[in-house]
Design a protein around this nucleic acid. Structure first.
Length: 270
DNA sequence: GCCCCAATAT
DNA sequence: GATATTGGGG
C-alpha cells in the first residue's frame, strides 16, 4: 500500500526534531568556491597519508544543498559543473541499504536519493549508479547464481562487490517489501581497492546494537534506518553525537593529475 | 515530469 | 574505467 509508505514518510519528516540532530552524518559536499580555494592552496602531497584537508571552513550541515557559491560571482550556480561523484564503498553501501530498504519496487532514483539523504547527491547521480547496479545484479543472476558454473562475476565490479547484496535482490519473488532487511555489517575485513582513498584511521569496527530494532514501527523504522547508517543510537542521545560534519575531499587525481574529483568522506566506516 | 534503458561523451 | 549526459520511449 502506498498509503503506509507515504504515511511513515511524512510522519518521519514531521517527527524529526531537526536534520542536524538526526542525521549527524549528513555528508556535505564542498562548495565549488571552496574547491577553488583548495585548488589554489593545494598542497603538493599527492599521495597523502593523513588528513588531506585542513578544515578552514566549518561546513554547515544543512546549507550544503547550495553549491551556488558565488565565489567568482559570475557563473550561474546551476550551470556550474560539479565534480564527479566518487562512489566510495561506504557511499555505495548507503545506496544498497536504501535500495534494500525500499524494496526493488520502490527503488527509483528519486526515492533512493531521498532515503540516502546525502547532501549534494543528485537524482542523476543515483540514476546513473542505479543503472549500473542493476546491470551488476543482472550479471550476477545469470552468471554467478547457479552455483557450480563458476560464472565468477569478475573483478570488474570492485565497488559493487564491496557491499553485500540483499538476497531478495536476486530473485524477484512475488512480494518483498523488505520490511526488515537488516543492513548487516559489511565485513570489511579486507581492504577494498579504494581503501587508499580513505584515511586509515577511519577504519573502526562497526557494531550494531541489535537490540535497537526489536519492534520497529513504521515511523521509527525510518529514523532507525538513518541512525543505523550513522552508527549512532536513534534520537535518544543527540547530545552525545559529535557533530563533526563530513568533509568532502577534493582529491587530485593521482593518475591523471589534472582532474578534481569529489569524495564523500564518512567519518565512520559503514 | 519521472522513469528506464542504451549509447555516447568526458 | 568510472561517471555524466543525452536521446528515445513508456
Amino acid at each position: 500500500m502506498r498509503e503506509e509508505d507515504s504515511n511513515w514518510f511524512s510522519k518521519w519528516e514531521e517527527e524529526l526534531p531537526s536534520p542536524e540532530e538526526l542525521i549527524p552524518l549528513s555528508q556535505s559536499l564542498i562548495t565549488p568556491d571552496l574547491a577553488i580555494a583548495f585548488d589554489l592552496h593545494r598542497r603538493n602531497n599527492s599521495e597523502n597519508t593523513g588528513q588531506p584537508l585542513p578544515q578552514t571552513t566549518p561546513p554547515q550541515p544543512n546549507s550544503s544543498a547550495e553549491f551556488a557559491g558565488d565565489s567568482t560571482g559570475d557563473e550561474p550556480a546551476r550551470t556550474l559543473k560539479r565534480p564527479r561523484l566518487v562512489w566510495t564503498p561506504q557511499l555505495h553501501k548507503r545506496f544498497v541499504d536504501a535500495v534494500a530498504h525500499l524494496g526493488i519496487k520502490n527503488a527509483v532514483p528519486k526515492t533512493i536519493m531521498q532515503l540516502m539523504s546525502v547532501d549534494g547527491l543528485t537524482r542523476e547521480n543515483v540514476a546513473s549508479h542505479l543503472q549500473k547496479y542493476r546491470l551488476y545484479l543482472k550479471r550476477m543472476q545469470s552468471g554467478g547464481g547457479g552455483g557450480g558454473g563458476g560464472g565468477s562475476v569478475g573483478d570488474s565490479d570492485h565497488l559493487f562487490a564491496s557491499s553485500p547484496v540483499p538476497p531478495h535482490f536476486l530473485h524477484p519473488t512475488s512480494r518483498q517489501s523488505s520490511d526488515h532487511f537488516i543492513p548487516s555489517f559489511v565485513p570489511i575485513s579486507t581492504q577494498h581497492p579504494a581503501a587508499h582513498l580513505q584515511p586509515p584511521s577511519q577504519f573502526l569496527h562497526r557494531q550494531i546494537s541489535a537490540a535497537n530494532f526489536n519492534s520497529p514501527t513504521k515511523a521509527t523504522e525510518q529514523a532507525m534506518f538513518l541512525a543505523r547508517q550513522s552508527q549512532q543510537q536513534p534520537v535518544f542521545r543527540p547530545a552525545s553525537l559529535h557533530v563533526h560534519s563530513q568533509v568532502a575531499n577534493y582529491a587530485q587525481d593521482l593518475e591523471s593529475g589534472a582532474k578534481t574529483v569529489l569524495t564523500l568522506f564518512p567519518t565512520r566506516d559503514d
